Amino acid sequence: MPTPPRRTARSAPLPAPVLRAAALLVAAAAPAQAATPVPTPAEIVAAAPADDWAAIAADDLLVMDLAPDAAGQDRPGRPRRVVIQLLPEPFARPWIANLRQLATAGWWDGLSVNRVQDNYVVQWGDAEAEDKAKARPLPAGLSPTTEQDYAARWAPGLVPWALTPMGQTAPEVPPPSPAAPAAITAPVRDAYAAAFGFRGGFPVALGYPEGPPKAWKTVAPVQAWPIHCYGTVGVGRNMPPDAGTGAELYAVIGTPPRHLDRNIAVVGRVIEGIEHLSSLPRGTGPLGFYQSAAERTAIRTIRLGSAVPDLPRYQALSTAAASFARYVEARANRRDTFFVKPAGGVDICNLPVPVRRAP
């Protein structure tokens, strides 16, 4: 009899769960590809080339030396130094002229920090200012001030580009200046202003005639004003129409009090030494005022930076630099290792313009 043909056995198909398990085993055995690390905002700033940094003129700085603390904690026997950068033109011109005159005259020397209100401000000047018999006389020839100068009228080129709820765009016709950085897509949403730009390293709000425009590139702002963020320095005043001379100053040490925008003169920002103000004991009186002379911190001197020997040179990251655009995007959408979900937007006060000592 003929031999029957041999039948070749076929493998039965594997169940789906077995296939999935095998795939996982293969994937686990394969060498993992390392994800490209995403730089942090600090790493972007540290890597910014030298050409992306702009010098801050020493004459645009106020240097306040406070008396050392009783324990001499940070630098025994040496004053605690606070360095303030003054606003650029066209903002706060009368007050800044007064600050220059007061500093040159040594008017603040021997006065004090008189108020520290938690999550709000530190204020300094003449503790006896309200008592005409005891108040220190102001220098003659100070510039008059008015609330009309809390904001500046818009002029073409005041800021070359703007941050809006739709990301970077032109604040007016014609299109943005060639100095604008690479496109910033991060939206800036704000309850106090329609859009923002930067002037001399400071964030400024832009005001439009009838609220936020429907077509950003066809409507020009009518005014711009500096805003209150952490470290902002402003001018103390009494009730309107008083606008303050600049003799009384404060620095923000808490949540940005944006409701003060266009209600008080902003004159600058602390670029170094804010810890010497924010760490002071809180005042025990109303609004954080100290109730006795013993509680106050003495001011040794306040001078223009150009009059301070051996003052370090300072630089700010140019807001027209590509590094700044990358920094903004990174602040708006944190994708570095610690973060789980990017925010998809950024608050203007969460974009502090980086400052460093010149290398």
Rank of each mutant, 00 (worst) to 15 (best):
K132G: 11
L142N: 11
R100I: 02
A155S: 14
A135C: 03
W95K: 05
R189L: 12
A92P: 00
A129L: 08
P174T: 13
A105M: 11
D69W: 00
Q148L: 14
S177M: 12
L87T: 03
A103L: 10
R78H: 11
G141R: 07
L158F: 07
T104P: 02
A103I: 03
L87H: 04
K132D: 13
P88S: 13
I84G: 08
S143C: 08
Y150R: 08
A179L: 11
D65Y: 01
A155I: 07
L138S: 04
K134Q: 15
P144W: 04
N114L: 13
P144F: 09
L99N: 06
N119K: 15
R136S: 06
V159M: 11
L111E: 08
T104H: 09
Q123D: 07
V116R: 12
P175Y: 06
L138H: 00
D126L: 11
A151E: 10
Q117L: 15
R78M: 12
P178D: 15
E89Y: 02
T164E: 12
G77R: 08
A105D: 14
L163Y: 07
W95P: 10
L61R: 06
T145P: 05
Y150F: 15
V63C: 04
A70G: 12
L99E: 09
M166R: 14
L61E: 02
K134D: 10
S143G: 00
G110W: 08
G157T: 06
P178K: 14
A105T: 13
G125T: 07
R189C: 01
T104N: 04
A92Y: 02
V121P: 03
P94S: 13
Q123H: 08
P94D: 11
A170V: 09
A105R: 12
P90K: 09
P137V: 05
E128R: 14
W108M: 08
V63Q: 00
R189V: 14
Q123F: 02
A97V: 05
L142C: 10
L138C: 03
Q85F: 00
T185E: 14
P156H: 10
T145L: 12
P160R: 08
G110M: 07
Q123P: 06
G167K: 09
N114K: 08
Q85M: 10
A105W: 01
Q117N: 12
V173F: 14
A183K: 15
D74I: 13
P160V: 08
A179G: 08
A129N: 01
T185A: 15
R80L: 10
L61Q: 06
A151I: 01
A103H: 04
E89Q: 08
D131A: 09
L163R: 03
P76Y: 11
W161T: 06
A140L: 06
P94V: 14
A152Y: 09
V188Q: 09
L87M: 07
D131L: 09
Q85K: 13
A71V: 05
R136A: 09
A170M: 09
P165Y: 06
S177H: 12
L163N: 05
P139S: 04
A155R: 15
N119V: 11
D126T: 12
N98S: 06
D69K: 01
A182C: 05
E172Y: 10
V173S: 15
P76Q: 14
R100F: 02
M166P: 00
N119L: 06
